[in-house]
């Protein structure tokens, strides 16, 4: 970062020197007001759909379909939720989503941190070539091989089973890459060296030095993986043929198709599917984004 900054700096400063002088207090105030106004417009646009989802899930279908729309919540929330519970096994779907996302996150955290630790701190034959392969796979979109993946799953006998969602994503290039960077900057070689002198083997070093020092990165990766697994849609849509194993996303899509006549239920279902994730995100946002700024400045 410093390299970039210094090359561009003199020129930029030069340019601003021409502008020297008047820092009118009024202009400063206007700038601040405009800044806050812009931010708040953005915040409202960003959060409004959530409010609207909530408002609609408290209304009857007739209210939702009414024109002009009713902007305020009504009193149908419990009735709508009841409707969802009576018609869709939403708890089973939620449990499945938790199993899939949770296991995915755990496996990714373990396998990725282990591989990242190795790539960051050890030399072994073929390392660079292997790492290059990993980088290329990073750029392949997941939706590319829908058909052959489905055929593969049917040959493995995994069609309709949750492991079809868990196993293929148990280790990924993104996470290894991320943690490798993390590990290179935050795990000092001296510690690993001294562990080696103490007689600790590779896996012990990983477990007792690598893991604690990568903790923050692993937590980030865990939340990240959990959220993307939770929101995955196209693959579960294809592979989960068993009505007993649906994830929240496919259950919700099916609620939307089957009960277009009762939109209050659809909205309540959507609300139920969104809430756990928002809760997890807000709890985890400390790891996720809160200190990106502070960290980046120091780095």
């Amino acid at each position: 970062m410093t390299v970039m900054a210094t090359t561009a700096a003199p020129e930029a400063i030069q340019r601003f020197n021409d502008h020297e002088g008047s820092v009118a207090r009024r202009r400063k105030l206007v700038t601040r007001i405009v800044t806050h106004a812009c931010i708040w417009v953005g915040v409202i646009l960003s959060l409004f759909p959530f409010y609207w989802l909530f408002a609609m899930s408290t209304q009857t279908t007739a209210q939702i379909f009414g024109f002009p729309p009713d902007l305020f919540p009504s009193n149908q929330l419990l009735a709508n939720i009841q409707g969802v519970l009576d018609n869709v096994n939403i708890f089973q779907a939620m449990l499945n989503s938790f199993i899939v996302s949770g296991l995915c996150a755990l496996l990714v955290m373990f396998f990725d941190s282990l591989a990242a630790f190795t790539f960051a701190k050890y030399e072994f034959p073929g390392k660079n070539a292997l790492f290059r392969v990993l980088l290329v796979t990073f750029l392949i979109p997941a939706s590319l091989s829908l058909v052959p993946s489905f055929v593969l799953m049917s040959k493995l006998g995994w069609v309709g089973e949750l492991q079809a969602l868990i196993i293929p994503g148990a280790a990924n290039a993104f996470g290894i890459f991320l943690l490798r960077q993390f590990c290179e900057t935050s795990v000092p070689n001296e510690l690993i060296e001294s562990a080696r002198i103490d007689g600790a083997g590779f896996f012990r070093t990983y477990w007792s030095i690598g893991v604690p020092m990568m903790r923050g990165g692993i937590a980030f990766l865990g939340i990240f993986t959990f959220i993307s697994a939770w929101n995955d849609y196209v693959w579960p849509l294809v592979v989960l043929v068993n009505p007993g194993t649906q994830t929240l996303q496919t259950a919700l899509a099916s609620l939307n198709t089957s009960y277009a006549t009762n939109y209050g239920w659809v909205m309540a279902g959507a609300l139920i599917s969104v809430l756990p994730l928002i809760a997890i995100f807000i709890i985890g946002s400390r790891h996720f984004i809160a200190n990106i700024a502070a960290g980046a400045v120091k780095g």
């Binding site: 043929v241 009505p243 649906q246 899509a253 099916s254 198709t257």
Partner: peptide
């Protein structure tokens, strides 16, 4: 009697048949 998740009836049934499962 079960009402399978309906995101396209024929897609659902044919996917089960093609996947030879459920």
């Amino acid at each position: 009697p079960e009402m399978p998740p309906n995101s396209g009836w024929d897609t659902k049934l044919r996917t089960s048949l093609a996947g030879d499962a459920y």
